[in-house]
Amino acid sequence: MAKVEVKDLLDGGVHFGHLTRKWDPNMAPYIYMERNGIHIINLYKTAAKLDEASQALAKIAASGRKILFVATKKQAKDIVAEKAGDVNMPYITERWPGGMLTNFVTIRKAVKKMASIDRMKKDGTFNTLSKKERLQVDRLRAKLEKNLGSISDMTRLPGALFVVDIKREHIAIKEAQKLNIPIFAMVDTNSDPRQVDYVIPANDDASKSIDKILSHVSNAIAGGLADRKAEKEAKAEGKEAPKAKKSKETKAAAPVASQEEE
């Protein structure tokens, strides 16, 4: 996994914090200086924290767990949808559904409802409904798709949460804390980093900055997924070897071999 360059972060404007009067004192360790009434983030610390977070995310991806991305602010929506989509990870870019994590069973029911509507359309049941009913079902399907379509493949609670702007996504943060789900986040100078397990001090308002951080994170996750795929292929090849050997063995030894395989 390639290490992040401080120059790249600088080019992306990752170092620009908020106005000094809006700062959270707990972000002091990550602030380099003040310039024209704005706090400047220490990019050397950002680079170190980003590398640390990326390594942890790669391990989670390699373990087969999903990482849920959360970003409902305008500047981050499209970037998160693109980067999370590239690595086949679930994401929330519309309103955070209350109880998304703490009441996951209910959310899964809503996702299944979406699947059942799709089945109705395939098997022809949809066409037997009245025009008014079809319109209602279509509206429900569109609403579910907008809010939950991006998490339709998430069949269990995620292995981690990645958040852009923890102040805005405070409900998601609280739910993850309640369930002890590790939280990774871009944390600006106006936020409390103590709420996050893996802090990435960064400008969470500029799309260029968000893109820089998300690109590095998604590349790390892609690396973790590639490792998992390679490991699976290696195991599959390992299982084929005994089968080839078995054909050469005597019939008397065959039952013993089958027991070992079980």
Rank of each mutant, 00 (worst) to 15 (best):
F69P: 01
I67A: 02
K146P: 02
I171K: 08
R156E: 15
A28C: 11
K3V: 14
D165Q: 12
M186F: 11
E175G: 06
Q75W: 15
I166F: 11
F69I: 06
N190I: 10
G224L: 00
R35V: 04
D138T: 13
S150G: 07
N147E: 06
A84I: 13
M100R: 06
I92W: 04
K59Y: 09
F104V: 06
K121Q: 12
I166W: 01
K3Q: 06
T106D: 10
P97C: 01
A71G: 04
S130L: 09
I200V: 14
A220I: 05
K248Q: 15
K22Y: 14
A47I: 04
Q195E: 08
L148D: 02
K239G: 01
I31M: 03
V4Q: 00
S218T: 15
K232A: 05
A172W: 05
I213G: 05
E261L: 05
V14P: 00
K208F: 05
K73R: 15
R228P: 01
E261H: 09
L19H: 14
A47E: 03
I40N: 04
R141A: 14
R168C: 09
K243W: 09
K49C: 07
Y44L: 07
D153Q: 04
K121G: 00
M186V: 03
I38L: 07
I171G: 09
T20R: 03
N147A: 10
R156W: 07
A202Y: 13
D118Q: 02
L148C: 02
S218A: 06
A252W: 13
P182D: 04
S63V: 12
P29L: 14
S247N: 08
Y91D: 00
D24Y: 09
T20Q: 11
A71H: 01
R35E: 15
A253Q: 13
R139H: 12
R119V: 12
A206H: 13
M89N: 00
A176Q: 08
L68S: 02
R139W: 15
I41F: 11
V70H: 02
M100Q: 07
T128F: 00
K121I: 14
E52Q: 12
E249F: 15
H18L: 05
L68N: 03
T128K: 12
S258I: 06
N180S: 07
A47Y: 04
G124D: 13
E94Y: 06
T106P: 02
K229Q: 14
G238H: 07
S247K: 13
D197I: 12
E82I: 02
D205P: 07
A244S: 09
L68T: 03
Y198D: 10
